[in-house]
Design a protein around this nucleic acid. Structure first.
Lengths: 201, 201
DNA sequence: TGTGTTTTTGACCAATTGGTAAAAGAGACG
DNA sequence: CGTCTCTTTTACCAATTGGTCAAAAACACA
């Protein structure tokens, strides 16, 4: 049943995913056109549709491939490690992703903003399960007195919003900060913020 | 030069703005159609274009009318008040706006996400000026030892991201929280977070 | 009531959209 | 070389898009 991919198939598949990321992350699903994606991929439109059956297939293919990378940092949160340091390194990992993969962040953001028509099931399933599990870990840390008593759910939301903001609202941030690099100072600020919030005493 | 607006003009103008907000905040500019807006406004498409010269005019009209409301909470930050309480009430005002005007928040978010093609000048002008002014106020508070030494710029970014997140990523939050109201617990969490961050000692 | 203005409509348009069909062109492989 | 599969292109749809226009309808007001 499984056929190995041709060299050409691999190359064009990758080119289309890259092009789709570039285009969809800028204009969202409905705001993007197949011609734009085809241009960005260096292919003709019918050639695109030889590899993917539809515009939607490119978009969803992109989203599912993205989601695992996106949740990886949270997955790495280790119940066995030092609580404060574990959470802080989660923050740093997440901020690094905003710096290194801003288009992925924006693609995800547009999908959510428009009501997550394509990935709502994943949010209610996989994501919710993962978050619940990690909330239990955090609650455990609180009960042991290792970190302050904070709402685990909102703690996680805070990490998401504070880190993704630097990718999603990049234009606004640069309009205010000018040429300075936001990420270095952001890293220090988030370190300070979460250490203050979490450190017991 | 100025002609007073007819009763009908006032009513339809308002209806179009409301419809535009509803539609554009869901699909973004390029993802929305005039037919959708016309439907939502209860008008025919040519009738829409009798009141606004183009799709873009509706969109920009919406954005400029929105921006002043959007910056109002920051404007209210008073250099004369108690520093910690001033900043905390800024947070609360901003979160309340996310609760009461989620569509406005999402419209703004989609515009920024797509590179702010329409309002970049405002960001680099008015917004930057306002932020610079308020940063000076915050720096003053720090120098007086009234609040901890935090980066004023990133402090403001933090308020924006943490509060707007509850409007912009509403779908994701509800997918995880279920039917519970996010805003009550969020308010407490943000109060805790910022009080910890800012309180000197 | 009549008359001038404002509002609304229906019919229409050119451009763009996602997608298809068929045939031409390349690659692989014996 | 020949043949078979894989890839790409050319030409083309039907539907939707933002927007126009002139005529009809509703309104305001004397």
């Amino acid at each position: 049943m499984k056929k190995p991919l041709t060299r050409i198939q691999q190359k064009n598949h990758a080119a289309i995913m890259a092009a789709g990321l570039e285009v969809f992350s800028q204009y969202g699903f409905r705001g993007s056109t197949l011609d734009q994606v085809a241009d960005a991929a260096g292919l003709s439109k019918p050639n695109l549709l030889y590899y993917f059956p539809s515009k939607e297939a490119i978009y969803t293919g992109l989203l599912v491939g993205l989601l695992e990378n996106w949740l990886e940092p949270l997955h790495q949160l280790d119940a066995g490690g030092d609580p404060v340091e574990e959470l802080l390194s989660y923050v740093h990992r997440k901020l690094a992703m905003s710096r290194d993969f801003p288009r992925e962040s924006r693609l995800f953001a547009t999908e959510i903003l428009q009501g997550a028509p394509e990935i709502k099931p994943v949010l209610e399933g996989e994501l919710r399960t993962l978050v619940d599990a990690k909330c239990a870990v955090i609650t455990g840390w609180i009960d042991e007195g290792k970190i302050r008593n904070v709402d685990p759910l909102h703690l996680i939301f805070s990490v998401w919003s504070l880190t993704q903001h630097y990718a999603d609202f990049d234009v606004q941030i640069r309009a205010i900060m000018g040429d300075r690099d936001p990420f270095e100072s952001a890293d220090a600020h988030l370190e300070d913020m979460f250490r203050r919030l979490l450190a017991p005493n």
